[in-house]
Nucleic acid binder design. Sequence first.
DNA 1: TGATTTTGCTAAAACGTTTTATATAATTGT
DNA 2: ACAATTATATAAAACGTTTTAGCAAAATCA
Lengths: 340, 340
Amino acid sequence: MGKKTSITSIAKHLGISTTTISFVLNGKAQEKRISDQLVKKVLDYVEEIDYKPNALARSLRTGKSNTIALIVEDISFPFFSAIAKEIEAKAYKSGYKIIYSSTENDTAKTEELIEIYQEKHVDGYIIVPPTGIQAKIVELCASGKPVVVLDRYLEGVQTDYVLVNNDESVYSATKYLIDQGYKNIAFITLNSLQSQMLDRLSGYEKAILDNNLTPIIQKLTPAGRLEREKELLSFLEKKCSSIEAIVFSTNYICVGGLKAIKQLGLRIPEDIAVVSFDDYELFEMYSPAITSIAQPIEAISENAINLLLSRLGKKASEVSQNPQKIILSTTFVPRDSCTK
Amino acid sequence: MGKKTSITSIAKHLGISTTTISFVLNGKAQEKRISDQLVKKVLDYVEEIDYKPNALARSLRTGKSNTIALIVEDISFPFFSAIAKEIEAKAYKSGYKIIYSSTENDTAKTEELIEIYQEKHVDGYIIVPPTGIQAKIVELCASGKPVVVLDRYLEGVQTDYVLVNNDESVYSATKYLIDQGYKNIAFITLNSLQSQMLDRLSGYEKAILDNNLTPIIQKLTPAGRLEREKELLSFLEKKCSSIEAIVFSTNYICVGGLKAIKQLGLRIPEDIAVVSFDDYELFEMYSPAITSIAQPIEAISENAINLLLSRLGKKASEVSQNPQKIILSTTFVPRDSCTK
DNA sequence: TGATTTTGCTAAAACGTTTTATATAATTGT
DNA sequence: ACAATTATATAAAACGTTTTAGCAAAATCA
């Protein structure tokens, strides 16, 4: 009751050295030739007093914290929370804990977060980066800790990536609409420089131009849901008569679009067809069900954590060697929202 | 480049003691009467080499890790990820980081998680407990770290709670259906001993009995979404002719129910009315929109983290004093799924 | 038997901080 | 001018591990 249990107090009580205890507890008894009886003595006592080593002290000494930082845009977005769950589960099995935060695409906040994680000597990073964070990430990579970037590509940052083929996905979804006979197809996205958004846009543009159609592009203000929904409503109000179909660059914009469409009394797909990037349970259940481009959440998570874990096993010098760029395929999920 | 920067290397370089540097860096220069020029010298150099203190060493010495453990049922559930976001944001402002995990209602896994967090010397806990974890939580509380329990009540565990008035909420929602003229009202829940589920059930039962109606209760297998949906379908198939309305004990069961209702070709609310506990974006957008009992996510999160932060400021002896039981009210959100 | 190797264990340094107790110099009071 | 106080800075212990280097006893070898 008096003194806290520690390897030192155990050593004192058993009349042996801390070294021995440490060896036993770390499974090095064999290797270090600790006699079986002493091993038993230690293990029995440790069991008896229910001793738990102090992970902080261990981390300080070893330089490993067994913690991975997960930095996403917003943990409350289904896409990210689903990834968070998968990653946590896999990390847990390898003895790693996850410490997370939401950037809300705020670069300054993200930089600060990274600094805090560095101070905590986190072993590795899985990051969904906001724009403008390149320099900080380069610096982070240089620190020797493995970094896996998710969802977005950062020009000039040499590290592991797990991405999806955004442009191709949107190209073929747009092509699908064209093949269905739609001609006036709009693309609604965020006014953002994030690579995944640009790629989706460019996929749309290519498909439109390849088929001699006219692009109709609307870029919404990124911050503020209410503001976005207002913009959406006024855009649709003005353009709905001339637009036959819409491709939304992400699911939450699509949700706003659906609200606007309902409010304006438009019918899907008769008045307007709809496709969304990033699937969502809502889309499956909606009437009519909304066609979408589903991201392989499990594969993304699995690749990210596997990549990180494999780097974690390596020497610091090999951590940044041969960076991988894994590009996964999406799944087009045709539903009722765009059948002529 | 050679040696890592540490307070010691700085001390050596500046020809002063580590004590001084520590005082300066911790804002104790005034209190400890470090001369202004020396303070400047330290700060300038620290800035120059961009020194970051080692949080592990600090935590080891101080016993504070500035980390809070968030243990929820499943971080990918919208309810929990929304809470996670709020909690993280507030904790961040107070200098705390969040380390999370999903229990999946697995008691053994949860016990193990708690042990790992104890080893990491986490400063406090916010827990959504699975059943059977009482003893472990009592033990955890006894360790002197503050513990806030969320969403569920644990008999015999003296600690802070943040809950909602489950029984009253379901009572009045059921009463609402009765007032609308519905008589054969079913309650579909999980076969679970979790307090929030039991309370919701008892709210339903009270309302039914108070109005001289006959309870119709269906308990589904907790684990396995597919299995649950199959059970739901077969239940509805058998009973749909005799049931006029259903109250679902939680949103994901309701989603399963909606699928089954659709599959059976039943109309809402004409053939069957629906109310769900726990609101969901899908419910607002569904056709018809689904009436629900919305939990005050922000208030839950805020109360939980505030409670924890206030305890964190206190001495270990006061941590468990005067435990709070905060019971928040839900909001009934009437929509089109139950208007006769 | 004496030299060598193997076995079994440990002393002590190191990880990078914070904090207590204390030393010295400068200032003030009388 | 001497004591008492205040200002400034530091030495050293402590937090609880891991790990390197090494010691003594026992076993093996020649």
